[in-house]
Design a protein around this nucleic acid. Structure first.
Lengths: 192, 192, 192, 192
DNA sequence: GATGAATGAGTGTTCATTCAT
DNA sequence: CATGAATGAACACTCATTCAT
């Protein structure tokens, strides 16, 4: 949590530099000084905006998660049927990852690092509350299988990550048709 | 030309120490000397068994993947219907992850680290050939949706990881019933 | 943009420590940490002033060579006859080596180490240009034998090193008379 | 001083490997294991033939010096006039260095390393006794300047090293004529 | 005699962080 | 607010040497 002060451009540069470097050379190799150099500032300056390296990395993660949460809730229409809403959210998420593969990749690396333990899970879940709400509604309406929330997301959203990962890492190409099919598969998995 | 012989227990200890430490403190923090200390040997000794740190980590990963591949092919019966085989494999994998959460978690961390790029993907895929074969058979028999292999696995196997991850990281409990349901969901996702 | 300024005394101490240690324990044994300890600074600090160990050693060499070049050109009088100039230079060099046996010994060790290959030979030769000029003048005036510059210096200056080396290493004593004779020998070697 | 045992070929290989490696990568970088690998034997085997690394390097040096001493005394004819003998020796030495630039370069590196202090100077000088004898005869016969032996060799033999070094390191070419002249210069330097 | 395994001590270098300016 | 200088601690790795076989 940065203590917002004068120079927002520095903080933005820092955010971008962190994501870029972690994607390029990995978590372990992304040192404070390298990030600082990438952002065009002094290593010491980082400690004005963030408590320490951990804080920088965690804050960057939370920031991206917030962005994703915001993105999938754009044009969110609670009056629609459950399937429509989920499809909307699903495509929004897919789109976000496609447009920001670097942000997405950062979260993937982060989520499998020990830093993950330092994140306030409640704060993250907050960003995704509306989606949880819709899933619960689907269960109540006997449209969706009555299983734990974790299992549902494992079939709805986790595959997006897997597919995106394959796309990013293995240069695997996706047609519009197969994206459409993918959502159908997600829906088939959870619907009653 | 006689000589002192290589000590198999040392290499085993090294394997276990690597997995344990990476799980406990993460990839980045797992230094060669810490791994050596955990294994009860000198850091220098590691370089007798492995070319360098990278080789140690990659070899450990490949070893686990090989184990998983072996595990899911136990009692593999190609004469069975596609669904039965997949269910068998699915449960085998679930069981393996449940019994070796540390091995599994290591692969998860590894797969999202920059080391991942160093693995010979073909070698890994080899271990999972029979499964790929069954999926293809399902497609030919018009039992399974005709989409890319990456997408199919994203819905069949990736959710296992997500669910297991939740179990490991969030102490989320699973009933036999919900495991059963989970496979049904995987199958519903991919079946025609 | 204020900052802490670089400490000139540190770099001087580093220079002296490098020379001293290389003379005492040799090139191979002079590790970065030993040099740092001798200079009274942290090993890490060296990397603020020099790119790496190689840079430290090469820079130290070039610095000494520059000093020698400067020393032998003091009171250099181009209007004098060739022999007088050479005698002046010869004695200046002899004096420098006598007064700075450690600097001189450093260059001797360096010149026979693999680091030698990393030095910009042109840059070094620049420091000795006037001397080369005088030798050429002597050749033109038919006072000095018309042979390659390398051979001339091999007889004029290289013996100084040999004699000085003997003095430093073997505690061999030199009288003023024998120094005088030594120059005569150098001159006899090259004069026509 | 190796304790000559069964396998002389191993010791020869060791000698050649040591010289080769020191020339290629320098003194500091020439580790025992690298030398062993170059010689095609185990590092441990070196300790059968030599007390330690130092012993290996020093013995190799002494061996080469002995060879040089032997070489310059070939066809040595004590009945000849002083100048003829010196010329003979001078050319023999020049020839040896030309034919064994690697051996020569090893001695140059060694003589400027701290190992040099470990050599029994008397033992080396022994190999060159006849030459010293001739120089003394020249002084007695008032043919050669009456100065210390170190100064005489500094002008007779040291320039050979300087010229050879230039040849080896700087690809500087020598004609037969200039070799002839070089000896004349050496002689001019020391003759009365 | 000869080996590869094994290691404590050390290598050059980078780290996250602090501090005087 | 922002900096480059400074560092103790750690890094991955190699060293010379010993030892059981």
């Amino acid at each position: 949590m940065p203590m917002r002060t004068k120079d927002d451009t520095k903080q933005d540069a820092l955010f971008e530099a962190t994501v870029k470097l972690v994607n390029e050379i990995g978590f372990a190799a992304s040192s404070v000084s390298k990030i600082a150099k990438e952002a065009g500032i002094s290593p010491a300056t980082i400690y004005i905006y963030y408590k320490n390296k951990e804080d920088l990395l965690v804050s960057t993660y939370v920031e991206i998660k917030k962005n994703i949460g915001r993105a999938i809730q754009e044009d969110f229409d609670d009056t629609q049927p459950v399937r429509n809403i989920l499809k909307h959210v699903w495509f929004r998420m897919f789109e976000y990852i496609s447009q920001h593969p670097d942000y997405f990749q950062y979260t993937e690396q982060f989520a499998n690092s020990p830093y993950q333990a330092l994140v306030d899970k409640k704060e993250i879940e907050k960003f995704f509350d509306p989606v949880i709400h819709v899933l619960n509604r689907g269960i109540e309406q006997k449209i969706i299988k009555n299983v734990d929330f974790h299992i549902l997301t494992a079939f709805v959203f986790y595959p997006i990550l897997a597919i995106s990962n394959a796309r990013v890492c293995l240069d695997f190409e996706l047609t519009d048709q197969s994206i459409e099919t993918s959502f159908t598969m997600a829906w088939d998995a959870i619907r009653l």
